[in-house]
Nucleic acid binder design. Structure first.
Lengths: 204, 204
DNA sequence: GCAAACTGACAAGACGGCTTTTCAGATTTA
DNA sequence: TAAATCTGAAAAGCCGTCTTGTCAGTTTGC
């Protein structure tokens, strides 16, 4: 491996990888995963098919990479936000977390589509990836609920099913809003979700 | 067209159609839509590929037929149930409707998988079909909410976003439970959903 | 300047599924 | 019984995609 065009081999690989992930976000997020061939991906990224197979084992691998990037950003953003609101009241923590989540995932409609539509039902492998992320989100929310309960801000009960329901509600609403923004303002959407989550945490 | 093997042409066509829909439910619901070829479908149904193309324009057409059957049964079941509970209190109507919905869609895990996973993100056409059904459910729920409000059983506000959130919550939880029944009893699931819906209808 | 390494573009083989056609055999009607 | 009709099974052509291999041209290190 030798440097080339002023860049090291490592840099060239990383750059190609990023260009392919960007192209995947664009194509998977607008035309759909099923309708996107590897040739289209490479043409959009300005990369040869040979390069493609140097970075990814196939189209599915690229899909997982795109989703991984999206979700890692979202998890990191929410975790950082919550830790910065250490002593804020529950309603504020929930409201700000929801607002940030909506911003991160629905800010770009392509992101929402990849995360909530294109990733679903692709294959056994992708499905396992999807469900494992879902479990992580669920655990994060259960921890937050337990914290609220211990501070007397929420009732004490098993919140596992509640977190699953919340994920469904949040994702469906975020996707709905990302496709039909005329339906309501962003504030209305976050208010609706905050109301739902607060209700689940405080109603016995 | 002539009768054959004691059956009219119409009967033979209907029977083949039903056998194909049953095979599709089995294969789409266990191995997945993407992994199911037309040959597999025909072999499972005990029908030739020639017959297949006499009944359906392609694999996607069959998927829509399966989902149509599932959803029509669910809508009809819920509508009938609600009209039979004309004067029952809201909590009872919601609870029984949720119970019936869970029974209809999660009773058979294959049904849940086809409805909530395999139908998502297949193609533009299928997506339109899916979103139009979602809009119908939303309208049904909005009407029910308006009815409850006029009887003083719910607050008066725009419930559109709430119905979208409810659909997400219900579908996610039903699917979750249909795959991991050990997590909770059916009663726990319906109780969780009833709580969520009642909270959204009564919290301002 | 030169050999070695790397590049993108292109092509070609492999593969699998879709869709139509063919065909021999079974069943019905006259 | 004979002709017409319908049947399932098999095959064959078609198509698009994936994946690997080749190649001439460019850049690098010495």
């Amino acid at each position: 491996m030798r440097s080339y065009a002023g860049r090291s081999a490592e840099e060239r690989r990383t750059e190609r990888r990023e260009k392919l992930i960007e192209a995947a976000l664009e194509l998977f997020g607008t035309e759909g995963y099923a309708a996107t061939s590897i040739e289209k991906l490479c043409a959009t990224a300005g990369v040869s098919t040979r390069n493609f197979y140097q970075e990814f084992s196939g189209r599915e691998d690229l899909l997982l990479a795109v989703h991984g990037q999206i979700t890692e950003r979202a998890v990191a953003g929410i975790a950082e936000l919550l830790s910065s609101l250490e002593n804020a009241p529950l309603a504020v923590r929930i409201s700000k977390a929801v607002t940030e989540y909506v911003r991160l995932t629905a800010g770009d409609p392509r992101v929402a589509r990849v995360a909530y539509v294109e990733l679903v039902g692709v294959s056994q492998t992708v499905e396992e990836h999807r469900l494992s992320w879902r479990a992580k989100w669920s655990a994060l929310m259960e921890a937050e609920a337990a914290r609220a309960a211990s501070r007397g801000e929420a009732v004490t009960r098993d919140f596992h099913l509640s977190t699953v329901a919340i994920m469904g509600a949040v994702n469906e609403l975020v996707y709905h809003w990302s496709t039909k923004r005329t339906d309501a303002s962003r504030e209305t959407v976050t208010a609706e979700l905050t109301r739902l989550i607060m209700a689940l945490l405080t109603v016995p």
